[in-house]
Design a protein around this nucleic acid. Structure first.
Lengths: 336, 336
DNA sequence: TCATATATACTCAATGTTAGTCTAACTGGA
DNA sequence: TCCAGTTAGACTAACATTGAGTATATATGA
């Protein structure tokens, strides 16, 4: 910080800095009967699995257009709904940044599509996102991996220096909700970051972060991804789990016609929690999010279900309406 | 798009691209009795006013650290609460990008501070953010500038090609809430973008965008800012207005001790709408956001008010609790 | 035909919200 | 000293929303 203030603050001074590589990565989500899926590429057996990504090129008119172009080229998908997630730039979290001692900015995007269309590339595959975050699926019961996570975190808390112990306990309680707190499904990124810091995910060791846990402890069923792509994916899941509550984005994932239960199962799959059926129906009806097509389907097993369609008009009527998961509502804590 | 897929998808390919300049800009907000303030710099009489900004440098360990360093150097403020807003990269919205035909990425951050501390730099000044967005302050009445905005937009709608007319009308209704819809205070960015597209803000002409309105129509009391800084500011206001509803961020702007009414006035100033006093008090009390200090103050005019302090514990108890402005609650639209 | 599975409708208590009114405690000026 | 003005703070009734449960309808398949 030696140069004078005024000489640095001018836009023209921006030119001379070291080259920055900008990488665009896409969390492309779809919903299948088996749960929420994310598109992952593995160009060849040597490379690690990765989200579809590519560098921002000079001819891309906007960042989003650059992302769309890369996804189209790599996977054949023509994206519909797209939103920017976050720009990451930690030097040490990116292999190629470490290798060339430069900086890589990683701009993450979230895209939602109907899975129906065929994919072009042999290298792209849909995976349940719970493959990468097995501790995030609480639909049926506590995930099988939770006890071992809890045990590791308990160890990390126990070995804390005295002054840090309480804050570690609180961080565990906040993110993983244990033992007395409820599960907050939106804190996907916060949970991942905690596991990363402790060293329970393999990429923490790969990145050379100073970890509490030994590399051997970091097995975990969770597969890791190229660079910071698992972090970007966590950001995408967090964002989507939050957004379905106040914007009608689920419908980007639904087929043109669907039943109430299909819609509920999709929301549950995304949020990783189960919902109360009658209340869910009432909410969706009450908000004017759907309308009947008149058709019914008998493929559901029992009584035939009405087929619904999304009321696109709602987007201009009340764009703020969403699905409103009950579990996240605030508990009042009266403190008179 | 000519090179083969696999050769482009590797991280090592990121190196060779054209230099990208990365600019970090800060929307630094504080609350004064006169309303919400934002820190704006004007290095010299020739330069346009700008948010504090500077390039990302190789020695910045993270993007956020780079931002903090720039703000510290330019303004003397040591930022507390900071969050990333968005990364902008439209080629034509940035003067220096046009000048050198390269790309400028603009990463915007939002920072909240107590105004109390003195500022170091002569070039930095606090301005009400409504100076840059006079149409956003609906606390007392409809802003004085609204009629002329409405008139211009009406003209833009009237001159639309037939097939586009309806969508223009809906866009106006959504963003500016007229004539029948209610005002949605969160759509700051959407409103600004509409005004930009129509050509009612001077920077649209400066950027050479193809505008409906002639340059002369774009006077508007609103002062413009360097590059896309007014867009970044709009993003920051939108984010903050949304966030006070579900996170206790207002308290970052409050002094250590404050009265209920001070808190309410601050929230109102940020949101640009007025609130119902008894309900606001009940909400804040009920959420456990504050506790009494035991002290009172008589400086408020009438009956002495109790001085409150923020309960920091709430951050670990329920980080999701916020102030919850009534005007944005959803209206039910029953459609049985 | 009956068990079973799913779809859909209805109920009810608890809780939260909206929009008010009413009272309390201070200041400053007639 | 007393009253008008001003702000603080308590209370309430009407209404809407939510959480959790139960009951009924219409399919399939043994």
């Amino acid at each position: 910080m030696s140069r004078s203030e005024s000489s640095r603050a001018q836009p023209s001074q921006l030119v001379g800095q070291d080259a920055v590589a900008v990488e665009l990565s896409a969390v492309i989500v779809s919903a299948s009967p088996d749960g929420p899926m994310v598109l992952v590429r593995q160009p060849d057996a040597q490379s690690p699995a990765a989200l579809p990504f590519g560098p921002l090129e000079p001819f891309h008119r906007t960042i989003e257009e650059g992302l769309r172009a890369w996804v189209e080229e790599l996977t054949g998908y023509d994206l519909g709904y797209v939103e920017q997630l976050y720009t990451f730039g930690d030097a040490n979290r990116h292999a190629s940044a470490r290798a060339r001692a430069g900086r890589v900015l990683s701009i993450g995007y979230l895209a939602l599509i109907h899975e129906a269309r065929p994919r072009r590339s042999q290298n792209s595959n849909w995976h349940s996102w719970y493959r990468f975050f097995p501790w995030e699926d609480w639909r049926n019961a506590e995930p099988a991996i939770m006890p071992s996570i809890r045990e590791s975190i308990d160890g990390w808390i126990a070995e804390a220096p005295r002054d840090e112990r309480k804050s570690r306990e609180e961080r565990m309680r906040l993110t993983f909700g244990l033992p007395d707190e409820r599960w907050n499904e939106e804190l996907v990124l916060e949970r991942y970051e905690l596991l990363y810091e402790i060293g329970l995910v393999p990429e923490a060791h790969r990145d050379g972060a100073s970890c509490w846990a030994p590399r051997e402890a970091a097995i975990m069923a969770a597969d890791s991804l190229h660079a910071d792509h698992r972090r970007i994916l966590a950001t995408g899941i967090s964002r989507l789990r939050g957004k379905i509550k106040y914007r009608p984005v689920v419908f980007e994932l639904m087929p043109p016609r669907f039943t109430f239960l299909q819609l509920q199962r999709t929301v549950e799959a995304l949020a990783g929690v189960e919902l109360h059926k009658p209340n869910f129906r009432r909410l969706v009806e009450h908000q004017g999010l759907v309308e009947e097509t008149g058709a019914v389907t008998s493929k559901t097993g029992g009584r035939p279900a009405r087929l619904l369609r999304f009321r696109r008009e709602i987007l201009v009527e009340r764009p703020a309406s969403g699905i409103g998961l009950p579990p996240l509502r605030q508990r009042s804590t009266s403190r008179r």
